[in-house]
């Protein structure tokens, strides 16, 4: 253990975040305002996710942190060692061994269980923000269930490109009521938002927390004649050969040779073990 309070945050702050999480679970997809704290890392590095994780961790937990599916990138390594230091919790890179998983922009390929919690780092929680910059207006639009603008945006995609071009942060309707932003996960991951695990979303800079209880209905927005499609790169992982996983495209040499690789490093390594 360290000289920090367990999991870094002070107890009154954790109480405030915990109340927000409970209200978030009671109204799935609704963004609950919370008094986000300054964390010892810059905004954009997962301060929202870190605060939600800090409010959820118990000493018995095993924490996994991924950044775009990888356990070994700067952001993931930093947050993992942060909690190892300030909470003294066990850490792992194996999805199956983790009880709490903090993620930046991916859902692990290994199916999650009901005893696991997935915490998302969210940059912009408001799905309508790029269509309507005023918070007062977007709040009112959610209150009135006024989501026509979002459908127009998707329609314009089809009009311009022949298909819905939104590839990540693909908006979805939660519990038949709130349109939400699943954070910038690839739309390949959207069908797996309906999960046995509790999913919590934390946006530090924007000061919002929202949640999906297990098995909550999450319908990716689409049209009858242009149904939602969970797309991925057409290829196979150069390391494990998988064709069913989400793939990163990597430039392999100075000649511009490209290859694909599983974005989920733990899943890829388990396949090769």
């Amino acid at each position: 253990m360290s000289d920090y309070n367990f999991a870094y945050l002070d107890e009154p702050t954790k109480k405030m975040i915990r109340r927000a999480i409970l209200k978030g679970l009671a109204v799935p997809g609704y963004q609950v305002p919370f008094a986000s704290r300054e964390m010892p890392m810059p905004y954009g590095w997962g301060t929202g996710g870190v605060q939600v994780t800090a409010a959820c961790l118990t000493p018995e937990d095993t924490l996994k942190v991924i950044d775009q599916g990888a356990d070994d990138t700067t952001n993931a390594v930093s947050i993992r060692s942060f909690f190892a230091k300030v909470a003294g919790v066990a850490t792992t890179t194996r999805t199956g061994e983790a009880s709490v998983i903090q993620t930046r922009h991916r859902i692990p390929e290994t199916p999650l269980r009901s005893d696991q919690i997935l915490v998302y780092q969210v940059p912009i929680p408001e799905p309508l923000r790029f269509l309507e910059p005023r918070e007062t207006e977007t709040r009112r639009m959610h209150a009135l269930e006024e989501y026509g603008l979002m459908h127009i945006k998707l329609y314009e995609d089809i009009a311009r490109h022949g298909a819905i071009a939104t590839a990540y942060a693909y908006p979805a309707l939660v519990n038949g009521r709130h349109v939400f932003d699943p954070s910038p996960i690839p739309r390949f991951d959207n069908p797996r938002l309906e999960s046995p695990a509790i999913q919590l979303f934390g946006a530090g800079r924007e000061q919002r927390i929202y949640a999906l209880p297990p098995f909550t209905r999450v319908q990716s927005l689409d049209f009858d004649d242009h149904p939602f499609e969970a797309s991925k790169a057409d290829g196979a992982c150069a390391l494990c050969g998988a064709t069913h996983t989400y793939l990163d495209e990597i430039v392999a040499d100075d000649q511009g040779t490209r290859r694909f690789q599983c974005s989920d490093t733990d899943y890829c390594m388990e396949r090769r073990a």
Partner: peptide, 11 residues
């Protein structure tokens, strides 16, 4: 630690 475990049960 006790409030963390209690919260997890409540959550």
């Amino acid at each position: 630690e006790e409030s963390a475990r209690a919260f997890r049960a409540a959550m």
